[in-house]
Amino acid sequence: MNHTFVLPNSGHNFDAKASKMGMWLFLYTELLLFGGLFLVYMVYRSMYPDEFLLASFNLNVWMGTFNTVILLTSSMTIAMSITALQKGNKKLSINLMWITIAAAIGFLVIKYFEWGAKFDHGLFPGMDHFNALPTGERLYFYLYFFMTGLHGLHVIIGGIFILFVISGVKKGTVTPERYSLSENAGLYWHLVDLIWIYLFPLFYLIH
């Protein structure tokens, strides 16, 4: 190797600000990904306000509220785990991340029961009872399954992301000085929360 010279602005340097900026840019695309679905929701709800209202009675408000509380709490724990890591308390940070993952699993379990109840009532596209519904109610359920399904997928991805951070902290690749990965997992998790903040009133709280 005959080049000892290294540029100060090398792309191979570790740059916490760059990685944070990259994560934010990615979150913008995620926002617009769900944004597209919200546009579709807006159009169909304004076309069929009454059917959306009727269809929403099939959802359990209290299960939705409980899930909202779970996600908000997990958002706090992941934020606190970053604070803990920055302050050098690795153990607390890991424990808080485990709590976040437990919350993610809890959220998914409740979602599983909610979806399961819809299946039991024949409220899934293709089922006989579903096909007999008026157009507006069917559109509500199309959107419900698509949007909560995609959101659920993001919960899973977010959980896996946090698992990576936990192993990173244990292995020592994520440290109080180099916590970008943990910060980015946190940002991603907050986005999952942010989407749910809108999904919850749009599907459960129609009145």
Binding site: V61, L72, T73, M76, A79, M80, I82, T83, Q86, H207
Partner: peptide
């Protein structure tokens, strides 16, 4: 020089979010 957010600030945010959640459920129901 990154800002480190305190546990207290996170907790207050959480409390406000929970209150707002119950408020929105209350208004709707």
């Amino acid at each position: 020089h990154e800002h480190i957010t305190s546990y207290k600030e996170h907790f207050s945010t959480w409390l406000a979010l929970i209150l707002l959640t119950f408020m929105t459920v209350f208004v709707s129901v």
